[in-house]
Every structure is written in C-alpha cells, then in structure tokens.
Design a protein around this nucleic acid. Structure first.
Lengths: 179, 179
DNA sequence: CATGGAATGTTTTCGAGTGGACAAAATTGC
DNA sequence: GCAATTTTGTCCACTCGAAAACATTCCATG
C-alpha cells in the first residue's frame, strides 16, 4: 500500500466549490458540511468526559489532516515514526503497547514503512521471534521534515487556550490516562 | 444488521483464558495484551495535545465498552439516542453536525435504530427532503435503562481525577473545541 | 413557470483498525 | 532432552466510519 507515499490525496486544480477546501492557515472553522449550526440540547452528554474527549479528538484529528494533507501523513503513523526515532531498536510489540495500537495493526503499519524504505526491521540473534525497528536515513529525513509543521500544528490547534491552560489540559489528560 | 440487538458480543461459557476477560468492577488496568510495560521515550509526543487526546479517548472508549459490553451499545450510538431524546423532532443533518458524525454515517445509524424500533423517522410536510427524528417508547426505555450505568461509567472513568480536576478538564476540552 | 443551483439524505466504495486463529521461536517443567 | 505453555509477530475475516457520487426536493432568478 505504502500509505505514506500517496502524493497528496488529490492533485486537483484548486479549491473545488463543493469540496469545502480546508483553509489551512486562517484558522477559521468554516461550517463543516452545511446544516446550520443549530445548538442542540445535549443533556447528560454536556457533562460527559468521554463525549467531549471524542469531540476534541475529532477536531484535533481534522486539524492534523488539514496541516499534513499534502504529506499524506496521519497522526498515528507520524507518532509511530517519531517513537521509533526516539527509541532505536524498539520492539514492535513494545511500540504497539506504548502507542495503544494493536499488534496486528502495527504489523501492517510497519510493513508499509518497510516497503516505503522508512524503517529497518532487524531480527535480533538472541530472540528470533522479535523484530527491532530503526529509522532509515530516509525515515529520519521524513520525521525531521515533518517536525516544524508538527510544532506549528500543535501551537495552532491549541490557539483557543492560553499557555497555562494548555499545560493544565496536558497534565490532566496524562493523569486521566494513568500517566 | 441491527447493531444494537446483538445479545452481548459472544455468549461464551465464561472468561476464556486467551481472551483476556475484562475485569469490570475492579478497576485494575491489567496489562492489556502482554508485552511488558516498558516506558518509551516519546519525545515531542510527550507534549502533544493531539497525542494525549487520542490516548485518553482510546482509554475512555475501552472503559465504555467494558461497562456496556452486555448491552452491545457503543458510545456514539448512545450519544445519538440521548440527543434525539433531548431534542425531539431534530433533523438528521443537524444531529450529525452537532455530534460530529458524518451525514452518510448518520443515515446508517438511523436506519439501524429505525429497524430496531428505537426511533421514528418523520418527513415533515414543509420540507420533504428532511427527516425528523423522535424516540419511540422503546427508544426512551432504552435510554432510561442505560442512564444509571452511564453515570456510573462517567464517574468511574474519571476516578483518577478529583472533582475539581474533572470540572477543569471538562471546561478546557469544551474551550478547546470552540464551546 | 422553467431552469440552474443548493440543501438533504442515501448508496456505494474503500481504508483504518479490531479480533481471532495461526506459525515460529522461546521458556518452563519434567 | 522433550513436551507443554508462553511470547511474538503475522494473516484473514470482519466492522466502523469516511469520501464521493447520486436522487430528490427546495429555492432563486429570469
């Protein structure tokens, strides 16, 4: 598949009228589909952590996609690359565990990266079941190239929060997840 | 399909050895797959809102599943039912918009609910494209039955946070999502 | 009113992610 | 040493959700 190599989802002429062409830099939220933004009564959902987590996550995901659209890179995939870079020789299962990605899925992802020449898979001599992962030079380049955009994205996506609020939110999320 | 009527995912004999039988009440986190909980260096991810949102959301999702496994109910589906209940006669598209569910997906969901006899779909006379949704008595019963469990789940899932922290987290999430 | 465009919901098609069975290698117990 | 169990990764079948094309209805403009 090489889910990383698709040369920007669709090389269209420009912002199509119907497609709702994602204003990248402006930060305007631009009324997703159509359907008036009628405020609904959410009842108990209004106070639900899980519900708001989902909302926030979807929004963050969308923002990420908007930022990285041309790279054809997804949040999960980038996190895998980064983590391999930070932990050369990490075991595939350990990686999956830390990133909350299922091992079966991680296998697919790593296959894709391998095929794309971004990671090396080495079978250690002392345990021939395992696979140790390392970034290739190309992989390191890919990560390095993505990092500035990543930082920009992180800043932009929290633009509604003050620095202190962002810090607090991060800490609380970490605490919630048992960090 | 009737994705709501499956009588608990698998009516097995008991907690299978290999299946990892989800201790519901204990709250112990029980080492998901196997793979030692080796702490990895996450580098820039450590400070990433999006990354921690994903982690927290996955965890919340899992907890929800554990709590509602026997009901065969999913977070998104319950949120749809609740919101219809809170807004009788709501338009399908408005609902999709508010819950960040794609319209095409909402169509499927509503079809399922309709087939299960949980919602009524009424085409208003003044706009024959639209569909207005209402809970049937059975639907209201379903929601009412789920609510206590839902509140319990909400409380449990935030057990690592104090009440004040939970409140703060909720407010920050809402602010982040443009509430 | 006729005609082109927009809004609403549906269908179809496809990718992402899961669950479970599996093969190979390691570990343990005898 | 050898069988049983466990760990590690992979494969296959399936579901959830998204993107895009579509049909129908409404609206605007002449």
């Amino acid at each position: 598949m090489s889910a990383l190599v698709k040369p920007a989802p669709k090389p269209e002429a420009g912002p199509q009228p119907g497609a709702g062409g994602r204003d990248l830099a402006t930060g305007a939220e631009a009324e997703a589909e159509t359907a008036a933004a009628v405020p609904l009564a959410l009842g108990p959902l209004e106070e639900s952590l899980g519900f708001h987590l989902r909302l926030a996550q979807i929004e963050a995901f969308d923002a990420f996609f908007a930022a990285f659209a041309e790279d054809g890179l997804q949040p999960g995939l980038l996190s895998v690359l980064i983590t391999i870079g930070e932990n050369p020789g990490v075991r595939q299962g350990v990686l999956a565990n830390a990133l909350k990605i299922k091992r079966s899925h991680m296998a697919k992802i790593v296959q894709g990266f391998d095929a794309a020449g971004l990671v090396d898979r080495r079978v250690p001599a002392d345990d021939r079941r395992a696979v140790e992962l390392t970034l290739t030079p190309a992989g390191r380049g890919r990560v390095a190239a993505a990092m500035p955009k990543f930082r920009t994205h992180e800043t932009l996506s929290a633009s509604r929060l003050s620095a202190a609020e962002r810090r607090t939110l991060l800490d609380l999320l970490r605490k919630l997840s048992g960090g």
